[in-house]
Amino acid sequence: MDRVSAQLPEAVADRYVDRTGGAWAVIHADSLPKVAAFLKNDPELEFKLFGSIDAVDRLHLAENDPRFEVVYFLYSLKRHEHVRLKVRVSESQPVVPSLTPLFRGANWWERLTFDFYGIRFDGHPDLRRILLYEEFQGHPLRKDYALRDRQPLIPERPIKDIFRGPGTSGLS
């Protein structure tokens, strides 16, 4: 990470080490592809093995502005370590540049993050829902989506659930 800060000082907004010793870097959304390309192609780093992408909805956390955090994990087979990147985006404009042109592995993970958090990836070739169906309304991993807000495609049979009662659409 020191090398990233040295090479692209304007890209890194914040750096810290979490309690378990994992090094994090918070990246500005615009410079994410540049940082990822540097991490991938620098001969001393070679963070080529694609890990995963996900997001965190910080709605109920103490520090929640901007609302979403997109997290990236890459691995270097040369250095045998993970790199953890974070990009913060707001609720009103949840757009992050896509990493799919750089890592083909990012394709499905970006679709997953879009599916569950509604974060759009600029430049993604085929951004559609991956696990849920097209007709689904909203993004279920957002904290304001109720746990039992069900959207069945075909009507569910009216079985009385003696423990939890009938589903409450829209209510908690």
């Binding site: 080529k48 093995l49 694609f50 890990g51 087979l77 890592f103 083909r104 592995g105």
Partner: peptide, 9 residues
Amino acid sequence: EDAIDFGYT
């Protein structure tokens, strides 16, 4: 190379 790019493990 492709396997690493896709995130194979």
